[in-house]
Design a binder for these strands. Structure first.
Lengths: 217, 217
DNA sequence: CTCCAAATATACAACCGTTTCAACTTTGCC
DNA sequence: GGCAAAGTTGAAACGGTTGTATATTTGGAG
C-alpha cells in the first residue's frame, strides 16, 4: 500500500498529526497568553483548548509551559552559528554577529505583525524573558568554539568564551531597553572594541577556518 | 520604663527573636541542602527543622526557597557600588571592579571553609545559579548610574548600562567555569579594553564625582 | 496586673506546574 | 486479522506558593 512509505520520517500520516497537534498547542497557548496574559492562563486550559490531555501537552513540550511560546523561535537558533562560520569573505566576526543580532530585533517591525505581539509578550513576562535568555545561552559553547576555530585560538579559550557569552547576553540586554536596536548597537560597540583590541588583527580567511584540527565536540 | 526604648528598632526583644528565627531558618536550610542536595529537601522539612510553620517560613523569605541560601550574601551586595564610587584615587573604574569581583571569588579559598561549600552548592544547583545571577543583576541600574556619574556621561547612557550588565554577568560566567578567577580575569580584560577604548580618556578625579547634579533615585 | 490593639504565627486548604503510572487507543506493518 | 510499538489519556500525586481565617504573642496603657 501507499501508506508503507516511512515509519517515522516526515511524510507519514502519524508525523503529520503530531505536527498538527504540536502546532495547535503552540497556537492556542500564544492566543490565550496574548488575550489574558501569561500568568493568567493555566496549562490545563491550554490542553483543553487544543483538545488534548495535560499529559500530552507535557509530552510535546517537556521543557515546560514557557516552551509553548518559543516553538518556532527554537528552529532559528542554529542560524547564529552559521552567521559566524558562513559570513561573507572579508566581513569580520563582530560585524557578522552584530548584523545577525540587529536582524533579529528588527524583524519585529518588518515581518509578521504577530511577531511584534510575541516580542511584547516575552518582554513583559519575566518567566519568558528568563527562558528566552537561557535558550540563547545554550549556544554559548558552540559560538565560543566557532570563534576559536575562526581565529585560530585554542578551544576553551576564555576570551572567546566570554565574548560569546556577552554577545548572547546582548539580546536579553537589548530586550530590557526601550530602544533595543540602539542597545544592541552600543553593546556590540563595546564588545567589538574589546574583542579587536584583545584578539588583535587578522582573522584568517573567513570562508574556511583553519584546516579544522579537531572536528570533535 | 526601660522597655519602652524602641518599638521596632534594633534593640527590642521582638526584633532579636525575629532575627533568631530568620537565622534558624537559613541555617537549617543550608545544612540540609549541603547534606542531601537542594532538590532533595522540601520547604516543609526546613520549616519543621527550624520549628516554625511553612507560612512563617514564607513570611520571612517571600522571595522563595532559593532566598534561604542567600540571606547573608544579600547584605554584601551594595558593596559593589561602593567599590566604584569609593575607589582609591588614581584607580580606574575597571580596576576597581575587577578587584572587587576577584575578591569575591577568592574568598572561597581564604575565608570561612563553610563559604566554599556554599559556593559549591550554588554552582551545582541550577535554580540557585539562576537566583544568584538575577540577584546581582538587580544592581545593573545602580552600577550604570554610578559609572555615568563618575565619567560625566549622561544618565541612561547605553555604554555604561552595557558595561554594567556585562560586568555583573561576569560573576555568573566565572561561576560556570572550572577556574573562576581566570575567567574573571579574561572577561574583565575583554570588557576593560572595550570600555577604555570606547569611553576613552580621563575619568574625572575619582574621590568625588561631578558635583552630583541629581541626588534622587 | 490587666486589658487592648497591633503584629506575628499557625493550621489548613487550595492552586499551579509538573511527573508518574497504569490503562486504553491508535498506528504501522506482517 | 492481529501484533507490537507508539501515542494518548485520566487521575493521582508532589512540591512550591498563596490565601484565609484563627490563634498566639507582644508592647504599651490604664
Amino acid at each position: 500500500m501507499a501508506e508503507t512509505i516511512d515509519r517515522d520520517g516526515t511524510g507519514g500520516r502519524r508525523e503529520r498529526k503530531k505536527a498538527a497537534t504540536r502546532q495547535a498547542l503552540a497556537d492556542t497557548a500564544l492566543r490565550l497568553f496574548l488575550e489574558r496574559g501569561y500568568e493568567q492562563v493555566g496549562v490545563r486550559e491550554i490542553a483543553e483548548g487544543a483538545d488534548v490531555s495535560v499529559s500530552t501537552l507535557f509530552n510535546y513540550f517537556p521543557q515546560g509551559k514557557e516552551a509553548l511560546v518559543f516553538d518556532e523561535d527554537a528552529r532559528n537558533e542554529a542560524a547564529l552559528i552559521r552567521a559566524v562560520t558562513d559570513r561573507p569573505p572579508g566581513q569580520t566576526i563582530p560585524h557578522a554577529l552584530r548584523a545577525h543580532l540587529t536582524g533579529f530585533v528588527d524583524s519585529a517591525h518588518t515581518r509578521d505583525p504577530r511577531f511584534a505581539d510575541f516580542q511584547r509578550l516575552v518582554k513583559e513576562t519575566p518567566a519568558l524573558r528568563e527562558y528566552s535568555r537561557t535558550m540563547w545561552l545554550r549556544h554559548e559553547h558552540a559560538l565560543a568554539r566557532a570563534l576559536a576555530d575562526q581565529t585560530g585560538r585554542p578551544h576553551g579559550d576564555l576570551i572567546c568564551a566570554a565574548y560569546a557569552r556577552f554577545t548572547l547576553e546582548t539580546l536579553a540586554f537589548a530586550g530590557s531597553r526601550p530602544d533595543p536596536a540602539a542597545a544592541i548597537d552600543q553593546a556590540c560597540l563595546l564588545l567589538d572594541q574589546g574583542w579587536t583590541t584583545t584578539v588583535a588583527h587578522h582573522d584568517p580567511e573567513p570562508g574556511r577556518p583553519a584546516p579544522a584540527p579537531s572536528p570533535t565536540g
